[in-house]
């Protein structure tokens, strides 16, 4: 963590679905300007944790603080207005609208029409979809849909970006391009990314938090976490090599 006061902090955050505890008393902190990756096997509670942070799910117990403000239980739009943007696991786009219109809708915080137009053009150039601007979002191939959603996330210039599996379903070259893009976006911003792809994690992460059964198993640098015996056990079973994590 780089700053003295964490940008985001959760205290005993819990989310239950009936008898299942998806997120269990999670104490988590991320500092301003940090790029943190969350890893963990399927069902570890990472996406549920994200959905609590973005307001899509109301926590059952615990608190969430953003830059000192208590945002527990706030709706998604209220949290977004505080500068939190999320890229969901399955790209959530306005499929019937053009790529340009999608990005433009995300620039409402830029003020004047001219400023919004400039910001839209900048974002389209950043995500490499300027030539696809007039194409309906629903017609884009999977990789470009992921980039467009990243465009929606950055268009509002958020202070905290939550990226849920930004490279899911991408080819190796697309993963490398996405990692490069995320690295560039991280300048001056705080990013938390849920990822499984170790190549991506190694390329972008400052530090890693490991989730297991709704709780934090461990935290640390990428290398330290990947060497951790408990992490290897969680991913691969006891005593096996973690290199393919």
């Amino acid at each position: 963590m780089t700053g003295a006061t964490p940008l985001l902090e959760t205290t005993s955050l819990t989310r239950r679905f009936g008898g299942v505890i998806a997120v269990h008393e999670v104490d988590f902190q991320v500092g301003d300007g940090e790029l943190r990756c969350l890893i963990g096997p399927n069902g570890a509670g990472k996406s549920t944790f994200f959905r609590c942070l973005s307001g899509q799910l109301r926590p059952t117990a615990g608190r969430i603080r953003l830059a000192g403000h208590d945002i527990t239980g706030d709706g998604p739009h209220a949290i977004a207005r505080r500068g939190v943007a999320i890229k969901t696991q399955v790209p959530a786009l306005f499929d019937g609208l053009s790529v340009l219109e999608n990005v433009r809708l995300a620039t409402w915080r830029c003020g004047s029409r001219a400023a919004r137009r400039r910001r839209t053009e900048d974002v389209l150039a950043t995500i490499g979809l300027a030539r696809q601007a007039s194409r309906p979002a629903g017609e884009l191939p999977h990789g470009q849909r992921q980039w467009l959603e990243l465009g929606l996330v950055i268009a509002g210039d958020p202070r905290l970006m939550l990226l849920d599996e930004p490279t899911a379903g991408m080819t190796r070259s697309e993963v490398a391009e996405t990692a490069d893009l995320v690295r560039r976006l991280a300048e001056g911003r705080t990013i938390i990314a849920v990822e499984h792809d170790i190549q991506f994690i190694r390329m972008v992460a400052d530090s890693v938090t490991v989730f297991h059964q709704g709780q934090i198993l461990t935290e640390g640098t990428v290398d330290a976490v990947l060497r951790d015996r408990a992490v290897r056990d969680v991913y691969l079973g006891h005593g096996r090599d973690a290199g393919a994590c």
């Binding site: 973005s54 739009h77 977004a80 786009l93 306005f94 019937g96 809708l105 409402w108």
Partner: peptide
């Protein structure tokens, strides 16, 4: 108008509209 564009956006994907900060 901008309001109308948001109306259409809500029809297309209400959750995404909320996540962009629009009070649906």
């Amino acid at each position: 108008t901008d309001f109308g564009r948001v109306v259409v956006a809500i029809r297309e994907n209400e959750e995404r509209a909320q996540l962009l900060g629009y009070d649906v």
